[in-house]
Amino acid sequence: MEEPRKEENQNTGEENQNQSGLPVRSCMLMCLAGIYLLYTGYKLCKNVIDGVDGGAWYFMVAGIAFLVIGAGMLFYGGKNVIKDDKEKRAKEAEEKARLAKEAAAAGNAKKSISDRANLVKDLNEEAETEAQPEEQEQEKTEE
């Protein structure tokens, strides 16, 4: 009983390794977080430059750090979303190509089956035509 479960777990582990590093939802959340960090970093830097009360030099450093981290998150998340989309489209194209090949193979199989049926029909007709003269000869010999 436990052996099939182990095999299933191994198969799912291999499938997960083949997939991209992060799911699309995580990448989208990463993009949103990156946008928020860019906004926060911009506001912190702008407040320090404008001389707003409470704007100290360490807010400028934090704002720059937020800008860098936000830009990195936005870039990395966007890159993964685009990569996943391309992979999805490639899989769909492969699936369509595979289905087209199967349909073509099925079409060829139908032709060959119908050809075989016609051959059998022709053989039956030939056998009947050969049997008719023999029956006529037997009738003549009986008379």
Rank of each mutant, 00 (worst) to 15 (best):
D50F: 08
L32C: 02
E139Y: 11
A106M: 08
E137L: 15
G51Q: 04
K43W: 01
I64M: 08
E125Y: 08
L37V: 04
E8M: 06
K43Y: 03
G41N: 03
A106E: 14
I113S: 05
I82M: 06
E137Y: 12
E126G: 01
E102Q: 14
A33G: 00
E139A: 15
A105H: 04
Q10W: 03
Q19R: 15
N18G: 10
S20K: 05
A56N: 08
Y36F: 13
L29P: 00
D53F: 10
M30E: 06
E126T: 13
V48G: 01
G34E: 03
S20N: 09
I64Y: 05
E15S: 10
E125N: 10
E7C: 00
R116L: 14
T141H: 10
L32R: 07
A109W: 04
V48L: 04
E139F: 12
R98L: 15
K96A: 15
P4E: 04
G34D: 02
K46M: 11
L22R: 04
L29G: 00
G21Y: 09
L29T: 05
L44W: 05
L74A: 10
E95W: 10
D84E: 12
D85Q: 12
G70E: 03
T12D: 07
T141D: 12
G70V: 06
G70F: 02
R25T: 06
S20L: 13
V81K: 01
D85V: 05
K83D: 08
L29K: 07
K88Y: 08
I35T: 05
A71R: 00
S26L: 00
A100Q: 15
M73P: 00
R98E: 15
A131V: 05
F66M: 08
G41S: 03
Q17N: 11
D50R: 10
L67F: 03
K140L: 15
Q136K: 15
W57I: 14
E7H: 06
A117W: 05
G72T: 08
R25Q: 05
L123M: 13
I82V: 10
K86N: 10
K110V: 07
Y42I: 09
E135D: 07
T129E: 13
M28D: 02
E134P: 02
T40K: 12
E130L: 14
C27Y: 00
S20A: 12
G72W: 02
E135G: 01
A90T: 11
A117P: 00
T129L: 12
V24A: 05
L44H: 08
E128V: 06
V81S: 01
Y76H: 00
L123A: 15
G34T: 05
E14K: 15
C31D: 01
M1F: 11
I113Q: 11
C31L: 05
M60W: 11
K88M: 13
